[in-house]
Write a protein that binds this DNA or RNA. Structure first.
Length: 488
DNA sequence: ATGTTC
């Protein structure tokens, strides 16, 4: 008896087991592709170029085991958003196109000890004060504006720079991947132009889907892990979603241009030029890795400065020291990176460039890279939903190392393009509806951005998380619901 | 995502 299949306009997926679908290797594919999704999600995923794109990624040299599309997968630049590709770090490649333009776009969650009842009535003042004090939108400056010397230090030292300059406390570093400082960052590989773009954007949200949201915890599904994460029902938390701004964008652009010149042979063999890659071991691969790691540090500092500024805003609104409100970083996760990691493949340990594009590292309990505070339960995974839907906190699941190179989904995933969204929605109406019907206060620089980010343009985050939990790659810990949101 | 069109 043959396995059930799913036909998606020319691409046939074979069901491996519940929520695991495979596009078999054929032609020039170097490995199969896997899609981790329920059938309702697959019906949405097949509507754009996601499946074609995940198939294309299997042409990258050194692709190991299989390319993976997460349940929130959607069409991206070359590599699908919600994609994981592990490429051999010795004889494979690193792909700037696959990491994408927003290097270390990611989210962090900060706890407070405030309850929703204590916050009630202050929503308007809070959202206005956050909006006034956290730079957002295109242009608009940063919390720190300085010369490229400062940018160089940030690129090299990450959050350690923020600690020295009074924008962080020690425990912030301990609750960030790599303690907020990526090894192998090489500021000299980041162009002057990228640094110039970044120097006035240190501590700024940016635009698009980036936001700062005050939320309340509505559910804790796992009491033990919830306790380890310091989460309980009705508690107020803050979620910050942003990336490396113009600096990361320029860095991606710079290296795509270099690949066109220096590795055209490899580029021409790829089915999609947007997957542009540099061969492992080449000078350009090393240079990109140094530059990308530096941009990762920049994004961490960006989120750190915004978080620290948020503490100061809460101090003014609630008239007490932020320490008293126990405003501590839960964790910071990167959604767009490549990282050298050692994974067991067919009983052998191999060094791989794990590309996670719109995907989150989800290391399980016991993994040495999980911070000590969470080592017994697994790393926190933060999954933002849309403005109207709220978000999830998961923990890295036991199956993640076997199934997904220690990864899970990163969000709800878009259902329609930004252009389409602006045709369907009007920003002012979306904002009014969120406030009147759900009591969610939204303040944005641009109405167009609100339309582009209307709750209806996103997949059902509940379904995405249900699949992650069922597969055991990221387990449900808590759910949050928006109180107020600022964006670009 | 993005000095929103190299």
């Amino acid at each position: 008896m043959s396995q059930p299949t799913f036909d998606a306009d020319g691409i046939t997926l074979e069901k491996v087991r519940e929520y695991v679908w495979e596009i078999p290797q054929e032609g020039d594919m170097r490995a199969p592709a896997r899609v981790l999704a329920s059938e309702p999600l697959l019906e949405e995923i097949k509507e754009d170029k996601t499946l074609e794109q995940i198939k294309n990624t299997t042409h990258l040299p050194g692709i190991t085991k299989y390319a993976i599309c997460m349940p929130d997968g959607h069409q991206g630049y070359g590599f699908p958003v919600g994609g994981v590709g592990a490429l051999d770090a010795e004889d494979g490649c690193i792909s700037p196109g696959s990491v994408g333009y927003d290097i270390n776009c990611g989210v962090r969650m900060m706890r407070t000890n405030l309850t929703y009842d204590e916050l009630r009535g202050n929503e308007r003042e809070l959202v206005d004060s956050l909006f006034a004090n956290v730079p957002s939108g295109l242009g608009g400056g940063g919390i720190v504006e300085s010369g490229v010397d400062t940018v160089d230090e940030i690129l090299a030292r990450g959050v350690d720079w923020a600690l020295e300059h009074g924008h962080a406390i020690e425990s912030d570093l301990l609750h960030c991947e790599d303690e907020g400082m990526r090894e192998g960052a090489d500021p000299s590989k980041v162009s002057q132009k990228a640094k110039d773009r970044g120097k006035n954007q240190i501590g700024s949200l940016g635009s698009g889907n980036h936001f700062l949201e005050v939320q309340r915890v509505t559910d804790v599904f796992d009491d033990d892990v919830g306790e380890a994460f310091g989460l309980e029902e009705d508690q107020i938390v803050v979620l910050i979603h942003c990336g490396s701004r113009g600096l990361g964008h320029q860095t991606c652009n710079d290296y795509l241009r270099k690949i066109e010149k220096q590795h055209k042979g490899l580029l021409d063999r790829l089915p999609d030029k947007e997957l542009a890659a540099a061969p492992a071991g080449s000078q350009l691969a090393e240079d990109y890795y140094g530059a990308m790691n530096a941009a990762i540090n920049f994004a961490w500092v960006n989120r750190q400065l915004i978080m620290h500024r948020t503490r100061e805003v809460f101090e003014r609104v609630f008239e007490r020291p932020w320490e008293e409100m126990e405003m501590e970083l839960l964790y910071d996760v990167a959604h767009n990176i490549a990282k050298k990691e050692v994974h067991e493949v067919d009983g052998e340990n191999r060094e791989l460039y794990v590309h996670r594009k719109g995907a989150t590292r989800a290391f399980p309990a016991g993994h040495p890279e999980v911070p000590k505070a969470y080592r017994d339960v697994g790393q926190p995974v933060i999954i933002p939903g849309s403005m109207g839907a709220g978000s999830y906190v998961l923990r890295g699941g036991e199956q993640s190392m076997d199934l997904t190179f220690g990864s899970t989904a990163h969000g709800a995933g878009r259902l329609m393009s930004r252009t389409q969204a602006k045709n369907e929605y009007w920003g002012g109406d979306v904002r009014d509806e969120l406030e009147d019907q759900q009591g969610i206060y939204v303040k944005a620089q641009s109405g167009a951005t609100v339309a582009e980010e209307a709750p209806g343009v996103y997949k059902d985050v509940d379904e995405v998380v249900r699949v992650s939990d069922a597969l055991g790659i990221g387990d449900k810990v808590a759910r949050t619901f928006p109180v107020c949101n600022i964006k670009g």
